[in-house]
């Protein structure tokens, strides 16, 4: 039996090849091939739910990035008009209401009006979570339009002191740290305009740390910004799933014969 040291040099080379997905003739070929074997039906069993979530996400209004100056000017004009019209209408309605109050009109008008709007908007804002009962989540909120940093601030300030310090080391708050300028609790608190907080919820780190939309959207932006100095130095390109994943040709050459 060779000691690990004796063949570790070889192993380092072999390891490189194994990591690249090459066949090396080493028994680990089999292990890694099995780990990257084609999907089983069971592994894809959640497809229907995921597709439903995708469809639901398509119904929600798309997150708006930025409006052109022209569009926002038009929007402002429209808003103004709506306000003017609304004022005019409310004046009219006011008149009507006054009339109703004074008994000049029959009753039902005032009672009917508030019911109209609700159901449609509820359905539209339904989110994917509602299809999976497994994990309780905070109710759907219209977070789509909210600024991501604002959101991170909100989440951040929910935590107590210790948790905040810890949270800053979490890559999820990387964006916030970057905006605040420093991985420093007080700095970020200042940035978010919040003071210290020592609520009893400090023990509920796990549960208050609930999933949240708006993950880092740049390919280089996920994870932790401590690694900014890193550059892909092994080619920078990811190969596709590196291992021959089919059961077809690649395996036959290494298959023993009798």
């Amino acid at each position: 039996m060779t000691s690990p040291e004796e063949w570790s040099e070889m192993d380092r080379r072999t390891a490189d090849r194994l990591l690249r997905g090459d066949r090396t003739g080493h028994p680990l070929d089999q292990v890694l091939a099995a780990a990257t074997a084609p999907a089983t039906a069971q592994e894809l069993a959640g497809e229907a739910d995921v597709m439903a979530a995708f469809r639901t996400a398509g119904l929600a209004p798309a997150p708006r990035r930025r409006c052109s100056p022209l569009r926002s000017a038009v929007a402002r004009l429209l808003t103004l008009k709506v306000v003017v019209v609304a004022l005019g209408t409310s004046a009219t309605i006011g008149g009507v209401a006054l009339a109703a109050n004074t008994g000049a009109l029959p009753g039902p008008l005032a009672d009917d009006s508030p019911i109209v709007s609700t159901p449609a908007s509820r359905a539209a804002s339904a989110t994917p979570e509602q299809t999976t009962p497994a994990v309780p989540r905070p109710a759907a909120t219209p977070t789509v339009h909210r600024d991501r940093v604002t959101e991170l601030c909100q989440e951040f300030t929910l935590h107590d002191r210790d948790t905040r310090t810890r949270a800053l080391n979490d890559g999820r708050f990387g964006e916030l740290v970057k905006r605040a300028g420093e991985r420093d609790r007080e700095r970020v608190e200042q940035f978010c305009g919040s003071g210290p907080r020592n609520s009893p919820s400090s023990s509920a780190f796990g549960s208050t740390f609930s999933p949240r939309p708006g993950y880092p959207t740049q390919p280089g932006g996920y994870g932790d910004d401590r690694d900014d100095e890193q550059r892909p130095d092994d080619g920078g390109q990811w190969s596709p799933r590196p291992r021959p994943s089919g059961s077809a040709s690649p395996s036959t050459s290494s298959r023993p014969r009798r």
């Binding site: 995921v50 996400a57 497994a134």
Partner: peptide, 24 residues
């Protein structure tokens, strides 16, 4: 499945290619 719900929801705000998608 929780991760995929989030992926489905946030996909449109993701920017990147297939490599980026795998990392994301």
């Amino acid at each position: 499945s929780e991760a995929w719900l989030q992926i489905a929801r946030d996909l449109r705000s993701f920017s990147g290619d297939w490599d980026g998608f795998r990392g994301w």
